[in-house]
Design a protein around this nucleic acid. Structure first.
Length: 717
RNA sequence: GGGCGGGUAGCUCAGUUGGGAGAGCGUCGGCCUUACAAGCCGAAUGUCGCAGGUUCAAGCCCUGUUCCGCCCACCA
């Protein structure tokens, strides 16, 4: 054979783009809405539209692609459904930053103009992440690409919102919520990160109204005392039994507030007396509800003290704290200050300290939805793999609280609710109503948008065409598997379960495979804000996509985090080269007869041995992939190809190839060809590019390796 | 406060029902043998965190303990 076109070393660069284009041009990633073949469907975890590829994406999408390519070779009608997420706050922040760089802000240009700008931004940068996924070799059906804000998905969002509202599962109400004074929006509980920080515990005396002594209260947030409407003690606390009906005077403001008794209060903490600020603390809010306390808001949406804060009006909340402590000390009301370490909530996007705030927001009543989602996993209709995550899932689902879905930002699905200027009626509808029932046409749409995860929760069915009953939906729902990191188990997976079960009456996926997080050298989560990311594209540039993918697969051990090692990538780059060169050897030792199709009457013992081994290993690798044991599958490939096929069989084959016995030679040539082609098929899910490149060099091959079947033992009988 | 994962060769990590301690990189010795020096052949390296227990047999099971990491949580 002529092997002049095969250089001694494999060079991935040019080859990869060529074959990716070939696959796309030949429609090899396309799924069929209707087919005789069994369906296999994965919906991609949609990356943020403004995002760039990071290691987490690389791992996540490599695993998905391995499964998809494997299943295609197994004869499945595979749909890997791609798309991107509008990523409300994240995207808005990015665009706002660029505005700030130009010395302006969104308020100066107005809502409509701002949203236009975000769409422009998306048009300009939204394709980046998609192209990067292609660099990875991702075999998505790109003809079906969706975006959470496109017309169809927006329709699904409105449909779901209205339906839940009509069933009483969405409501609007005054509650204490997590407010980010920087992003200027409410956040769901999940979007608040708790972080321990050094702080102080202040012991403050609230004088009794009747003048004798006072009640000492411990707090970490003295500035909120301006909004106190009670002091609570435990009803079983013998120290305070005689305070029934007593009032104390709020320090500084001298407002009388009652002493109340509530079982929530921990006798052993501080002095056993708790100041109650219903408008600025979630627990206090609950206590306030139980006792009918007034809610006095003293901090506004900017984190500044408002008119109710009296002399502290206009101060920043942290400045106010210092001032009020000084004043308390001056008045002799500050008993003592202890160093204290406690956890405070911070915005997951900008790390600003969260201010619990009384506010009118939209919520999803979640308990009824959670119930079915728990049952679906308990009954095995959806499997979570590895199963250790099931307990985490159950814990969260069983303690779930209502989901705050409104956000005070501009980029996102605007809540389909309208307020009537005439009668004050709230109209929730899929399309903008012309006029209210009262006859008034003065309707104003809700300015809030929905939490980004609201539309993501619909992803498994909205991308397939819901609310229309499309053929795709019929064929591919429920989807086969969801491949994702545990960091979005609650944000995304749990919510898809709930929405899927509610609207489709069926689980959104049969399997959920939870893979590890790729961490940095110190075991920390890689993130843009920490600046500790290793760029996957640089790795690809350096070592080639195939080696990179194989490394990720080999690292994807269930239940363990990945700390990426450059050395391992290097090792697998050598492996790719080994495959290249063994192919080169085989090709240069074959002749036309080897491809005639006629098997030799007899095979030598080594021939039979390697064929048997190939069949056995193929079965093991198939089983490993069926079980989502990617690292085992990769290890089996490595061991077999290098240490059995190359080190033993090829070395033995040389003797016969260069020997005198023509029959033996023919047998060996045929076996070499068969094993090589088997190996290429075996490796294709992991290393799509190099295997395709070699495959199409095999004389007689006219089709993509993607059309070949995954090898099984019966192929080599 | 609750839960989870991990401490295995110098480094990064595998180790599926208990029975051989492994891979990559690195190190040492020998090989430019016509597929591959990105390679081949050979070698060294580990009280598998610590202490007990079950067993004929434990890295793997049980108990305790220590260190690290993570997740969840309304103790002010």
């Amino acid at each position: 054979m002529d092997i002049d076109s095969m250089p001694k070393g494999y060079t991935p660069g040019d080859v990869e783009d060529k074959w990716y284009k070939y696959w796309e041009d030949n429609g090899l990633f396309k799924a069929e809405d209707k087919s005789d073949r069994p369906p296999f469907c994965i919906v991609i975890p949609p990356p943020n539209v403004t995002g760039v590829l990071h290691m987490g994406h690389a791992l996540n999408n490599t695993l998905q692609d391995i499964l998809c390519r494997y299943k295609r070779m197994r004869g499945f009608n595979v749909l890997w459904q791609p798309g991107t997420d509008h990523a409300g706050i994240a995207t808005q922040n990015v665009v706002e930053k660029s505005l700030a760089a130009n010395g302006t802000d969104r308020h100066a240009i107005g809502r409509e103009k701002f949203i236009d700008l975000v769409w422009e931004w998306r048009a300009k940068y939204g394709g980046i992440i998609i192209n990067q996924l292609k660099k990875l070799g991702s075999s998505c059906d790109w003809s079906r690409e969706r975006f959470t804000m496109d017309e169809g998905l927006s329709r699904a969002v409105r449909e779901v919102f209205v339906s839940l509202y009509e069933k009483g599962l969405i409501y609007r109400g005054d509650y204490i919520i997590n407010w980010c004074p920087r992003c200027h929006t409410a956040l769901a509980d999940l979007e608040v990160e708790h972080e321990e920080r050094d702080s102080f515990l202040y012991y403050i005396r609230y004088p009794y109204q009747d003048g004798k002594g006072g009640l000492i209260v411990a707090t970490t947030r003295p500035e909120t005392l301006l909004g106190d409407t009670a002091v609570a003690v435990n009803p079983d606390d013998e120290r305070y039994l005689d305070l029934k009906g007593a009032n104390v005077l709020l320090p500084v403001l001298d407002r009388p507030i009652p002493v109340i008794f509530d079982g929530y209060v921990d006798k052993s903490f501080g002095t056993g007396a708790l100041k109650v600020t219903p408008a600025h603390d979630a627990n206090d809010f609950e206590i306030g509800n139980r006792h009918g306390l007034e809610r006095i808001k003293v901090i506004d949406e900017d984190g500044m003290m408002n008119d109710m804060a009296g002399p502290y009006r206009g101060m920043d909340r942290f400045e106010c704290r210092e001032r009020i402590v000084d004043d308390l000390r001056a008045k002799g009301l500050l008993e003592k200050v202890e160093p204290y370490r406690n956890a405070t909530g911070h915005c997951y996007r900008c790390k600003t300290m969260i201010e619990p705030l009384l506010s009118k927001q939209w919520f999803v009543k979640i308990a009824p939805l959670a119930e079915k989602a728990v049952q679906a996993v308990k009954s095995g209709r959806t499997r979570i793999i590895p199963s250790t995550w099931e307990n985490v899932y159950f814990d969260w689902m069983n303690n779930i609280k209502d989901w705050c879905i409104s956000r005070q930002i501009w980029w996102g699905h605007r809540i389909p609710a309208w307020y009537c200027d005439g009668c004050g009626e709230v109209i929730v509808a899929k399309e903008a109503p012309k006029k209210c029932r009262c006859g008034s046409s003065g309707l104003r749409q809700e300015t809030d948008v929905l939490d980004t995860w609201f539309s993501s929760a619909l992803w498994p069915f909205s991308t397939l065409g819901w609310p229309d009953r499309t053929a795709a939906l019929e064929t591919f729902y429920p989807t086969s598997a969801l491949i994702t990191g545990f960091d979005i188990l609650f944000f995304w997976v749990a919510r898809m379960m709930m929405m899927g079960l509610h609207f489709m009456d069926e689980v959104p996926f049969r399997d959920v495979y939870i893979h590890a997080l790729v961490r940095d050298a110190e075991g920390k989560k890689m993130s843009k804000s920490k600046g500790n990311v290793i760029d996957p594209l640089e790795v690809i540039e350096q070592s080639g996509t195939d080696a990179f993918r194989f490394t990720l697969a080999a690292f994807a051990t269930q239940g363990r985090d990945v700390k990426l090692s450059e050395d391992r990538i290097e090792g697998y780059r050598h492996f790719v080269n080994k495959i290249w060169n063994s192919s080169r050897f085989v090709l240069m030792n074959l002749d036309e007869d080897s491809f005639s199709g006629a098997n030799p009457a007899e095979r030598s013992l080594p021939d039979r041995w390697i064929l048997t081994r190939l069949g056995k290993v193929s079965d093991e690798i198939g089983q490993a992939l069926d079980d989502y044991r990617f690292n085992d599958a990769a290890g089996l490939c490595y061991q077999f190809v290098w240490h059995e096929f190359c080190d033993w069989y090829i070395e033995m084959a040389k003797e016969w190839l260069y020997g005198e016995d023509e029959a033996l030679k023919k047998s060996v040539q045929t076996t070499l060809k068969e094993v090589l082609m088997g190996v290429l098929r075996l490796l294709h899910p992991f290393m799509p590019f190099v295997t395709e490149d070699i495959w199409q060099r095999m004389p007689g091959v006219r089709e993509s390796i993607m059309k070949a079947s995954f090898p099984v033992s019966s192929d080599f009988k």
